[in-house]
Design a protein around this nucleic acid. Structure first.
Lengths: 207, 207
DNA sequence: CAAAAATTATAACAGTTGTTAGAATTATCG
DNA sequence: CGATAATTCTAACAACTGTTATAATTTTTG
């Protein structure tokens, strides 16, 4: 009600979206176990029972937040990659890292809620979320295999390990206190520099 | 009671240790918010009220588990480094990675409990845990600065970013389903290979 | 074995949790 | 406006939470 909405957008959808957003924020701060329906309702200026008009229950609501978390990152990364279809394979990897990190930190509580709560969510939800994750991981598998096909990744580097290393160092930045003041874009460059050039290798300045 | 104990070890300490261990396992599986004192007590063949003889309350118990989580990793890493005092700076980094990963996956639920629950633990506990973390991080800062001093890390690589990248890719392995069958030692080698030689650089075989 | 100390169990407390049914309210539309 | 549909609130439920005081039990000691 505090939000402007397009003519063609149903009030029902606006409320749903607001609930999902507030839930995401609470999940990031307090985690799955310590986010109650009454907390969520209060953040939405509602009462707990009213949430059941929009969602089947706590777990259904949270599952949707976490599902959307992956989908949003995936959508943004795919869009960026589509608009840079002719870039070099390694530049596409760097771009994907930049968008992934930016979405995590600036754009969406959904994504960080997913990352922080995934380990502690009920097993049946976690099971379904795995499928959603795999779709996004397919993007990275494709990125890295393409780079290898172009001869840009050494033969003795296991692509799965490389993928987990990249995802790991990026997602773990959520544990830092405010990313130590580094902008996500700079962070992506530095991570890329380390993972692909190697911390031991000096990189000659171009020009 | 089900456990043999040394003559000089008080029963009190044995019980405390058992409670801490079972708590760590539950924390890893269920997280902070969904691990109740009755769950812990049941895992110890006790009743919830009895736990108060050993600990001041839930938060005190959990804080001690998580504190010990860092201390154990730190102790094992320091020991290994002391026994390899004359190794090259980069070999010492690789060794630290190996011990860190091994402890996380094979040796101790304390460490993984710490990593998984840290974001969702009450704020005052989290504050105190930060100091404990900083002590361990000092080990890594020293490792990397020494390597740089020996000219083994390129000048344009930010050491803080490198440290976060290493810690991040290692800690994130807890999110994989059983590390995908890779042994921690091999994992350490591959991570080291990527982060220091660079995924794009072919490494000439020695010999 | 008996006395003292250490450890655990019992039972209850106040508060919180997810959930539900039905009443009350608000928005939509003829 | 009036009628209908779409939302929200109310109030309660059973189950669970951390915690406490006190009683029962076990272990250690003399």
């Amino acid at each position: 009600m505090a939000q402007a909405r397009r003519k063609d957008e149903k009030l029902r959808d606006v409320s749903r979206r607001m609930i999902l957003e507030r839930t995401a924020r609470l999940l990031v701060r307090n985690g799955y176990g310590d986010t109650s329906l009454r907390d969520i309702a209060q953040a939405c200026d509602m009462k707990a029972g009213s949430l059941y008009y929009h969602f089947d229950g706590k777990d259904a609501l949270i599952e949707q937040v976490m599902t959307e978390g992956v989908r949003r990152v995936q959508a943004r990364v795919r869009d960026a990659l589509d608009q840079a279809a002719d870039a070099s394979p390694l530049d596409r990897v760097r771009l994907a890292m930049e968008v992934h990190l930016t979405t995590l930190h600036d754009k969406s509580d959904y994504a960080s809620a997913h990352i922080r709560c995934f380990p502690h969510v009920p097993a049946d939800i976690r099971q379904r979320l795995r499928s959603v994750r795999e779709e996004y991981e397919a993007v990275w598998i494709d990125l890295l295999e393409t780079a290898r096909g172009a001869g840009l990744i050494a033969a003795d580097v296991d692509l799965m390990t490389l993928r987990f290393a990249l995802i790991g160092m990026m997602n773990w930045t959520l544990e830092w206190p405010r990313v130590a003041g580094t902008r996500p874009t700079d962070l992506a460059d530095r991570f890329f520099r380390i993972a692909f050039e190697g911390a031991s290798h000096p990189v000659p300045q171009i020009g």
